[in-house]
Computed example of a mutant assay.
Amino acid sequence: MIFRKGELFNGPGGFAWGAKNARVEANGMTYAVEHTWSNDYCDSACDTYTHNICPDKPESVHRGDVRLLNLEELGEIDAFIYGFPCNDFSIVGEKKGFDGTYGPLYSYGIRVLKHYQPKWFIAENVGGLQSANEGKAFLQILSEMNEAGYKLTPHLYNFADYGVPQTRQRILIIGFRKDLNMEFRVPAPTHGPNRPHPYKTAYDAIMEPPILENAYNNDMPKHKPKVIEFLKAIPAGQNAWYDGIPEDLRLNVKGAKMSQIYRRLEKNTPSYTVTGSGGGGTHMYHWEEPRALTNRERARLQTFPDEFYFHGTKEKVRQQVGMAVPPEGARIIIEAVLKTYAGVEYDSIKPKWDVEQMLEQKIDSLFL
């Protein structure tokens, strides 16, 4: 059975690559996902997505602002995926929630659900969504998804627990159409202490196997001599505020000191979160060599294969890599969705949130 997939805010195609490689064999059938249409406002991301996901169907990637898109004419779908913009829900920044420019964009996904009524959907956002607008934003989004006709399973995932060599926490909301009488169960973590597999480390990702010199998007960064000396004074796992940095090299910064500024990786643990933007000192730094990571090294930490080519300037590529969902994490979640649909059992854990209880509390609050 092939599920026709629509996608909003497609980015470079992390979720789409995971979907493209997800397969479940059961009941004498193959359950898989097929790209049908997608949308993003970033030209470079659309170029990357088209190149890697649907090179034979460039017209199926709709470029431009979702607010100007005719959602009702995109084509019938059975599955829907959208990582709605997280800028206003992030724990870093002003956390405007629904009051920001990007917060309300989740509603376009709700419109897709109501119009096409796909069998299942996956929505993704940062962990900060749970506290945006004092928790009201998260509850409102869940309420609207429920009213669109879906049984929901939201959970806070750490992708490192599923074999991604990076500590990356994201909220995923998986919904099955209510008339299907199916309930998604959160797949049990597979990596970490007392689990079947150890965590995958930054070293595993970047060095095994080594990246070829002519690999895509692997241009080495260029640093000023003072930055190189500064990095040499920072041990693996430490950052710009390490006490052992000589006085003449220290940063003159007052106020908040972000832990990820000039933070060097520890090679024997998963990396810290790959991000898509930020100024000097936020590019992620090698544990041994005094330099920032290349975009290909960041892509390795995100589990993109080396043949996955990113279009755009170095900064645009960095943005795409950092904003993407790790393809390997996406594949694992989508295969759990396919197993749910096929009726295949798998190890699971209790989700972080009880949606029915949350929605009941919302209804009760209206009468207080």
Rank of each mutant, 00 (worst) to 15 (best):
P118Q: 02
A137Q: 09
E72W: 13
A342F: 10
V126D: 11
K316T: 05
F121T: 00
P246Y: 06
D47P: 01
W37S: 08
D306M: 03
S271V: 08
I332F: 08
H197K: 11
N70I: 12
H51A: 08
S38D: 03
P193K: 05
P12S: 13
K226D: 13
L265Y: 05
V355N: 00
E134D: 15
E73K: 15
A215R: 14
A292C: 01
E289K: 01
Y116H: 13
F138M: 09
W287H: 07
L142F: 10
Y41M: 13
E345Q: 08
E328K: 11
V253E: 12
A160Y: 07
L71S: 04
N87R: 15
D354S: 00
G11D: 12
M284N: 04
T282N: 09
L212D: 13
G278W: 13
D179L: 01
H223T: 09
Y285F: 06
A236Q: 03
M145F: 14
N70K: 15
K254C: 03
G28P: 03
L129S: 08
F98T: 04
T101M: 13
N27A: 11
E213H: 14
Y162S: 04
K119Q: 12
L68W: 09
I334V: 12
M29A: 10
P351Q: 03
I122A: 03
P55V: 02
A32M: 15
H311R: 10
N125P: 05
N295K: 11
V325P: 01
H283A: 12
K95L: 15
Y31A: 02
Y150R: 04
T201A: 07
L231F: 12
W37Y: 09
D65G: 07
T190S: 04
E34H: 02
P235K: 12
D40H: 07
I211R: 13
P290D: 10
P187F: 05
V321P: 01
F138V: 04
P235Q: 12
D43R: 06
L249M: 08
F89N: 05
G64H: 07
